[in-house]
Design a protein around this nucleic acid. Sequence first.
DNA 1: TTGAAAGCGTTACCAA
DNA 2: TTGGTAACGCTTTCAA
Lengths: 372, 372
Amino acid sequence: MTVTLADVAARAGVSAATVSRVLNGNYPVATATRSRVLRAVEELEYVVNGPASSLAAASSDLVGVLVNDIADPFFGIIAGAVQDTIGPVTSVPAQGRKLAVICNTGGSPERELTYLTLLQRQRAAAVVLTGSGTDDPGHRAALAARLRRLAAGGVRVVLCGRPLPAEEHGGADGADPAAGTAPEVDGPRPRPVEVPLDNEGGARALTEHLLALGHRRIGHLAGPDHRSTTRHRLAGHRAAMTAAGLPPTPDHLLIHGTFHRDSGYAGALRLLDADPGLTAIAAANDTAALGVCAALRDRGLRVPQDVSVTGFDDLPFAADVAPGLTTVRLPLRETGQAAGRVALGAEVPEDGVVPPEPARVVARDSTAPPRG
Amino acid sequence: MTVTLADVAARAGVSAATVSRVLNGNYPVATATRSRVLRAVEELEYVVNGPASSLAAASSDLVGVLVNDIADPFFGIIAGAVQDTIGPVTSVPAQGRKLAVICNTGGSPERELTYLTLLQRQRAAAVVLTGSGTDDPGHRAALAARLRRLAAGGVRVVLCGRPLPAEEHGGADGADPAAGTAPEVDGPRPRPVEVPLDNEGGARALTEHLLALGHRRIGHLAGPDHRSTTRHRLAGHRAAMTAAGLPPTPDHLLIHGTFHRDSGYAGALRLLDADPGLTAIAAANDTAALGVCAALRDRGLRVPQDVSVTGFDDLPFAADVAPGLTTVRLPLRETGQAAGRVALGAEVPEDGVVPPEPARVVARDSTAPPRG
DNA sequence: TTGAAAGCGTTACCAA
DNA sequence: TTGGTAACGCTTTCAA
């Protein structure tokens, strides 16, 4: 039923090996032969059998991209950039024609592990993990173990916007007691590469911006607890406060939520209840910040006249859509493209870390002085 | 180096066949044997070789999902819903564990075809095409041919939010003269299934809403020309105008653009220049509508006091973020889930068309009467 | 309930 | 420059 290499070979009057060589273009073939083969391919509408080819070549052209929330443009932009870089229409010569598999983990460490297993099973060429990872020691250890196995299987691992989970100390396979008999790796494998996002610097710049405007009572709507991104952004915020000689944000002005709009809405209401006199709110990301704006509107407050709102640049147009919203512009496209190039093996730094692009504050309509 | 079935079999003291049966769970195996095998799998950290298994079984567990713009939450929501339905954590029993491959076409018919070839090459179990398709006859024919080949290869095809491109009339393979010698299909294959979005009904409801508010000078910012979605939404708009006994929207109030924010911004300015007295603008989608809101703000106009703005529900929170924006709520999640179930083969209607969920108008702050 | 063995369609090595 | 031919790792009859 299906057309195979042999069919093409027969029609072109050559051997299967020759057809393979023509198709892969990695071996010299006489011009006449080549065109004969190509014509046969056309006529028979032949399409390579990927699984067979992957089996024989011991590698596939699949690249996994894990995202926390596919409905969030933040990840959409990164995933799109990765895909553009490695995909059918790539700018990296002789590397393209790979297929990006975008996997939506929903922020769940379990699903993350499940997807990684699935990708390992597909013998993916590379795996790109984007967005924040969990800080939970158990999950980190499990993730580290899985990444180790992926690397051992020749899968290139790229961490985009999150740090590499540390391996367990002590003997090999410390994280998995049952793995004592697992086979050893047959040589040095490429280590995971980090393509960081400057979460800490961005949060610091964001807070410095608010402080420069004269704000002192700043509510902080942080992301989910136990996430690397949350931790880094919080650290940046604190660094700015400290550098300005100010006390750290008090507990009642620091609320943990999610990266979603609802969380921003609810969090803003709680912050206002906790301190009706606050003049600024820093949100976990733009999506949450938009929720903050809505909450302020519903409370009869204006943005930024009454309260300045800031967030991370998850939605490129957020600052424009919600007047008064100040965001940190993270270089999402650039980061995604860098991750894509690393996944292709085209850009692997010595120390395993691609230098991050600096985050920039996009101030807009936020020059109003704080209230009384 | 890598652990294979044989390794597991040896360790468990059984044959490879038995291990395969245990792993696939589609064959009776003694409980004792099963647990012995599973333990060996654990101990060796065995992960199935997907390509090998796909080759032997002549089918893979990959499902392709094509989207026009991965950075647009509209597609993110649909893609996420498809993935949730078919993916590792699925609610459809005994069907899950499939891997969704989300492909970003950027709205380009060429990239669409390229991705379809790539997916055919991977022997994908199913392919889901989402969002508007091109109306260009050449591309439609090429797409129809490719879909036919996919179906012939046993790939289930799902069209989500767009109509099935018609086959060429006349003899078989009419669209591809060079294919005269292509092999015949070896039996009846499942035809593509349509999971529609009610674009026409939504546009009609949107326009009716504006008309009911008393608007008569309505600017229409349509989507890209030659796209099915654009055509359907335009048809709904016109139907509402006609049903109300009104003349069709004049040419100078009908502008084609893209589905992006910038297009909405620029288009709104053009519309205002063409008719400074218009009282409402219907945009191609929410993203463009947000751009319209920004343009109105920059022109010193208020929404909806001076101009009512409407759009399709690409961003769930758009109406909430931009006060005065009225949207049509398309059942994106439901549609995506239906598409996922169809892709799994769990829901295939007789006539090949899943009934669409109705679109609903989400009115908000748009009760202001028109100016003048 | 289990095992042996024949493919599945490519790739890549070795000759020619 | 080309052809023959082992792998590649799994699934799936067919027997036992």
